[in-house]
């Protein structure tokens, strides 16, 4: 493989040292390297998983009066569910997206005024996870966005400052000051902020629950919790489906 060529063409003086040019053939080396690269490329995960950190309330029984009841005007309850076919597979819409649905009501559930076995004052509504269409919020995001408008407006202003690096020219300090200020705004009790209670039906997909938690991050909602679905919620949903269909 390695070749040593004599490059004299017979015209050189006798006695002069022979010049040798050394060629090493690197082709097998390249072959081997390519193989190794292929191996590493196939076996690696480039993107590390992200995590959402959540805190669940304790399971211990809390006395009724100790419970930190959410103010009725601030509370909004989301019930996420997923439409499934008879075999339990997630149904998909025309665009191939899973059919995750959110039922929501503001304040307390209204079970009063029963007419012919139907709840006339049913305050539950149905929305979907639609995300953004350009800068316009759609679906459940719009509802949460509107509820948390005061906080979001302040944070948007803060974001502009952050982009212009007004807090500090160093990007690290700039980031941390922005984070601290954003947190302050999120927890500012003088603003009207919603309290979101997230519930999931047994057939709701994991994706839909994460989607709901994700909406909290997107809409900068600091007060939310995951709760178990109860009888009242199922009654409301069944009543809604009975009236409006699925």
């Amino acid at each position: 493989m390695a070749q040593i060529e004599q490059s004299d063409k017979g015209k050189k003086k006798k006695g002069a040292q022979k010049k040798m040019s050394i060629h090493v053939d690197f082709t097998p080396m390249v072959d081997m390297n390519m193989l190794l690269i292929t191996f590493f490329m196939l076996c690696t995960t480039m993107i590390k998983s992200q995590t959402l950190q959540i805190t669940l309330p304790t399971n211990e029984k809390i006395e009724q009066q100790d419970m930190n009841k959410a103010k009725e005007s601030e509370a909004i309850t989301l019930i996420v569910t997923t439409e499934r076919d008879a075999e339990g597979n997630v149904k998909r819409d025309d665009e191939g997206r899973p059919m995750n649905v959110v039922y929501y009501y503001e304040g307390q559930p209204d079970l009063t005024n029963v007419v012919d076995g139907k709840l006339a004052n049913n305050n539950i509504h149905k929305e979907a996870f639609l995300g953004n269409d350009g800068a316009v919020q759609r679906g459940i995001r719009k509802i949460l966005h509107d509820r948390n408008k005061q906080v979001l407006e302040k944070i948007d202003k803060l974001k502009v400052q952050w982009r212009n690096k007004e807090f500090s020219p160093k990007s690290e300090t700039n980031d941390s000051i922005y984070q601290a200020k954003a947190k302050e705004i999120r927890n500012d009790s003088t603003l009207t902020r919603p309290v979101v209670i997230i519930k999931a039906t047994p057939e709701a997909s994991w994706e839909s629950l994460i989607g709901a938690l994700d909406e909290m991050q997107i809409n900068q909602i600091s007060r939310y919790q995951i709760d178990n679905i109860n009888q009242v919620d199922s009654v409301l949903i069944l009543d809604y489906i009975g009236k409006n269909g699925k």
Binding site: S49, Q50, Q53, I54, T58, N59, D214
Partner: peptide, 13 residues
């Protein structure tokens, strides 16, 4: 929750 490990993270992409 029963184990009082109320704080944990959920893996997402």
């Amino acid at each position: 929750q029963t184990l009082k490990m109320n704080r944990f993270s959920l893996m997402t992409a």
